[in-house]
Write a protein that binds this DNA or RNA. Sequence first.
RNA 1: GCGCCCGUAGCUCAGCUGGAUAGAGCACCGGCCUUCUAAGCCGGCGGUCGCAGGUUCGAGUCCUGCCGGGCGCGCCA
Length: 585
Amino acid sequence: MKTELEELLAQALARLEGSTLGVPVDRSTIVVERARDAQHGDYASNIAMRLAKAAGLRPRELAEAIVAALPASPLLASVEVAGAGFINFYLAPAAQFDTLRCVLEQGERYGTSDAGRGQRVMVEFVSANPTGPLHVGHGRQAAYGATLANLLRATGHAVQREYYINDAGRQVDILTASVWVRYLQAAGSTLPFPQNGYRADYVNAIAASLRAARGATLEHSLADVLEGLPADAPAGDKELYIDALIARMRALLGAADYEAVLELSLAAMLADIRADLAAFGVEFELWSSERALARSGAVERTLARLAALGQTYEKDGALWLRTTTHGDSEDRVLVRANGAQTYFAPDLSYHIDKRARGFELMIDVWGADHHGYVDRMRAGLVALGEPGECFEVCLMQFVSLYRGGEKIPMGKRDGQFVTLRQLREEVGNDACRLFYLMRSHDQHLDFDLELAKSRSNDNPVYYLQYAYARVASVMKQLAARGLAYDATEALANLGRLDGPHEAAILTALRGYPDVIAMAAANRTPHTLVHYLRELAQAFHTWYNAAQFIVDDGATRNARLALAQGVQQVLRNGLALLGASAPESM
RNA sequence: GCGCCCGUAGCUCAGCUGGAUAGAGCACCGGCCUUCUAAGCCGGCGGUCGCAGGUUCGAGUCCUGCCGGGCGCGCCA
């Protein structure tokens, strides 16, 4: 609709060229927007104000001239000049009703487009270290990433969702050692738990499955384990201690058994994470392993390419990447003086691998605490000859949990954090999804458990689902009264939808495709939540003001058609958000 | 010290890439169920858009400088 109106304006301006207007008008300056206020019609353009100065006319005068030059169109009921020089378009009733026809005809496809032209996009999200269960912050990233992928798909992009498993770093060794210590303790060992270990309950569970798999074959005496180890914190250094413990464990068990413990621990953690996300309705096309990438030699190839391109140099025994020449604030280390790679090296290699796999755009969803890494990653890609625009990061701000106005402390230390699973079990998946997505991603999120659980009118989850269920209920009532919906009669009598409430709903339905397009383009799923709330509100208002099941068949069927249009869009929107649409509540 | 994000009604937040009289929800006050689900609806109350400049026809939105809050600044991951 917007583009049709813009085309009309372009024709009008072309007629004025050479007379009222001197120079031809750049097509991109002709913009039509949905009117924010119903008093301003259905669509509005500010083109007269933008061109007034160049034309040497007052905005309103120019607007009048443009309106006079507009070709006739069946789409329009009237066009007015208002305010400082706005041109307001009022759609003809037939055009309004076409919206509803579209919704009913297109069904679940309503709102989708091919704007993305099949662009290959990867959305990488969550990618939490497999060293513990997902917490509520990961939940937000999961909900956001999944919905962003849905939105991009709905707008014609070829989307792949991917989870990058950081299974190669020191953190995994710490998990392995933690499991082993718990395994020893379970057999009566008095070996103290390392200060820097993972001490939450899930480690005990993995230790138990380790015992089930290997019996006592991995046990060693306290004296053997402690031999040559430095003091742990607080007397000593907890980092030195855990590294020494890991080395000791490797020496005592041998490489093969050490790897076996590591594999078992990793597999247990990943199984937990995958099950958690699957239960949350979040799926990935690919779970990509850092260890697999490293074993393939990809990281070394990336380093070699960087060196060949003259992008690296050695200093103080370390290998540095010149990221500053590509917009980073300082150069970054790829390989440390001790020969070990930093995290940056495989990470960069992973992203260049994504490009090699043909993804034109890589969107990463990261926690806001990682914001300092955006520039270096992009710089690394540019150093390898990639365009900087191929990489985009959506930073997610933190989540604070509240219970009835009381903030819940979330120290990761001692494992005193609320997991995603606990949250889902307490408030339900739908509430989780919607609460996570209600706020802009660059806004801190206050998640109130009591509010999310409450079956009351201050809970936005129920507000949306209630609107959906109400339509379903009406259709059931219809059948109970021995009546049936007649689509043909409905479509022949859409003119009966002539009240202000009906008009508001038609306007809202017409805006849905724009909302989807914008939410996808701006990476802002929360605008969809707000839109659905407005649609539900328009529906609830109408529902309270009018009776749908009336004696007159023409009116009845027309109203039922509109109600089902609302239901369809609610269903489409909730599906994109990953929330259910219940038939009854 | 430097970088990123945030600052809008008592509280939690929108504000559609610069538009018209700044909007919701909650809270508070007052109304609406013998009729399709009251998990709903209607009305009222509530604002110096952190502060000060600037850009222009027009600024909550863009620029600069302050103030306040969060996060990050390792040859950790």
